[in-house]
Design a binder for these strands. Structure first.
Lengths: 120, 120
DNA sequence: CGACTCGTACGATAGACCTCGTAGTACGGT
DNA sequence: ACCGTACTACGAGGTCTATCGTACGAGTCG
């Protein structure tokens, strides 16, 4: 109604509340190479990145699956913006629940990537 | 000498070399509640703890399985000492590979346990 | 030696997980 | 209204995992 520009669109996606985020779930989400890669790009990139920004060596179905696992474990936040789905790390919640963990994890991933000769 | 007391016994167990430890493997190992619990007890307890010290709500077969996963992912070191198998965290290797990660993980686990009202 | 304890190996089972393909929905532009 | 793009839902295949039970090897103590 008189709504001109609903840039942030209607469809809502189920996210776990902060207090429902479980460490085991986060670790499980990050234990998959594809998902770890997504999170690293998310941390290195802008605040929000669309799903299609990622060029993963899997089909789009699988990509969707991984993003959902990340969202349902509480690692990322997803919001529709038109046809695109924007993804962002839940830094605030993760830092509140597990101070320093996310940074250690990202640093560890960076270190390993450097050690294995994979471009960051 | 003349080998009187072979406290540290014969049977050797395969461990991954430090440089073969993968972050994804570590995270996967720690993403299981039973294994996370083991690691927490290991970190809180003495340098080395026997398998039988742990009173887990699973059978002995399953316990063996979990310890093996932890060992093969590089999280713990296992050594036979008579009939007992002593377990210790590979703090040195993990700290060298991923500085600060183990402490962050343990702190996060402690925090969550406290938050959920589980005795540490 | 015999018996007991500690832990292993192997097989089985049920569930979870990663991957894919196809078909379908939501949104934006022409 | 139509089409293209972005993402999803559902189902299937193959692999991995957690769990168990039973049978077995290694070591210690009487």
């Amino acid at each position: 109604m008189t709504a001109a520009a609903p840039t942030t669109s209607s469809r809502a996606l189920p996210h776990p509340a902060r207090e429902d985020i479980r460490l085991e779930g986060v670790l499980h989400a990050l234990s998959d190479p594809m998902r770890l890669r997504i999170v690293r790009e998310l941390a290195a990139g802008a605040d929000e990145l669309s799903c299609s920004h990622f060029d993963l060596p899997v089909t789009k179905s699988t990509t969707t699956h991984h993003f959902r696992v990340l969202r349902e474990s509480g690692v990322i936040r997803q919001v529709y913006r038109g046809t695109a789905k924007m993804n962002g790390l839940r830094r605030d919640d993760l830092d509140a629940l597990f101070p320093g963990l996310l940074d250690s994890l990202l640093a560890a991933a960076d270190r390993q990537a450097a050690r294995l000769g994979v471009a960051g």
